[in-house]
């Protein structure tokens, strides 16, 4: 399948034989963030930097920021709320997606 075309520009003639994918790692291009109806936000006053949110995130999209606090990559975050549920200190709040 053509490596660098956007999905919306791929024609049926671009599809490789058997719809095999010859380039590795392009699942990363797939934006799952637009599934989100609720969005997690972090309250740094309550966060103890334990990282349990990152451990539990099923999408693997929570990571450190420069100060060692945690944040989600909203390109992938589906808004499942598991991070908020697991957080010891209730530092994460789920709010409506705007």
């Amino acid at each position: 399948m053509s490596a660098r075309k956007k999905d919306s520009e791929i024609t049926w003639q671009d599809i490789d034989l058997g719809a095999v994918i010859r380039t590795a790692g392009n699942a990363a291009e797939y934006k799952t963030g637009d599934w989100r109806s609720e969005k997690p936000t972090w309250n740094k006053d309550r966060c103890i930097k334990c990282g349990i949110c990152a451990l539990f995130c099923p999408e693997g999209c929570i990571h450190h920021d420069k100060e060692g606090y945690f944040e989600a990559d909203y390109y992938y975050c589906k808004g499942c709320g598991i991070c908020a549920r697991e957080c010891w200190t209730q530092a994460i709040t789920m709010g409506p997606e705007e």
């Binding site: 999905d7 919306s8 791929i10 024609t11 049926w12 671009d14 599809i15 058997g18 719809a19 095999v20 994918i21 010859r22 590795a24 797939y30």
Partner: peptide
């Protein structure tokens, strides 16, 4: 290596 039997999102299934 190639990916065989990947899933196709609605924007690609028709083309496949």
């Amino acid at each position: 290596p190639v990916t065989v039997g990947a899933f196709a999102v609605p924007i690609l299934y028709t083309e496949a």
